[in-house]
Amino acid sequence: MMSKKLTAYQKVMLARDTKRPKTEDFIQALFDDFIELKGDRLGKEDSGILGGIGWFHGRAVTVIGHRKGRTMEENVKYNFGMPEPEGYRKALRLMEQAEKFGRPVITFIDTPGAYPGLEAEEHGQSIAIATSIARMSSLRVPVIAIITGEGNSGGALAIAVANSVIMYENAVYSILSPEGFASILYKDASQSANACEAMKMTAKDLYDFGIIDKIIKEPAGGMQEDWAGAFKDLDKVLTKELRKYDSLSDIALAEHRYQKFRRIDENYLLDERKMGDR
């Protein structure tokens, strides 16, 4: 259909569209009685990350996501969905809490990246992200990540180390924002449209590479045209994915996630020992 003909750049535009449902909208639609839990317990609350507990079809789950605003005022408050270290420390606190009480963790990814600011560096952006990635890899509960908009850099991955990584069709997931990529590799941020193509950041590219596990289709014009449909599709997918992990023990869940990332590029490495001369 129409959305199949979109260029990567057009998808980036759709993924960033403020009319697209945000983490808060997904939470409201999919989880009952959601209770927000704030703070990193080390001195700060970073609202660039939203977290809490809610019911998913009668099962308590921990939900964590990047929070983007819709208005300028909201965006300033949430720092445009760019978390500081405190946001990642809160996310990690909530994930470890979920593990303690055996709740699945569901994360929503929608961020331009971790905030590149002076204080963020002073407060340990690197170690906050590193620790979140490392600890998330060994959680003994099911973890499902859904990339709903744009997922850029370590700032996205910090909450995306999941047993199942799901992407909406027009969402994008990449090593860096296309603007940042263009500025590093082409020394010209205005080349970002070209960067979008070169980076292979669309759901289809990443599914073909085996980097993500599932794509949720979107109608022409993107899921912003049909919120209800987007929520219904995700509800189905989440139910199915969670059921898949019901039979795995807590240790097996962590091992499943470890092996998934351990082998994620095994078909893309060249080993001189295995290939022989010609």
Binding site: I133, S137, G154, L157, S174, I175, M199, M201, I264
Partner: peptide, 13 residues
Amino acid sequence: GMFSLMQMAKTSA
């Protein structure tokens, strides 16, 4: 591209 980002997960794990 994303193959590099995935190394962060692989190595940290």
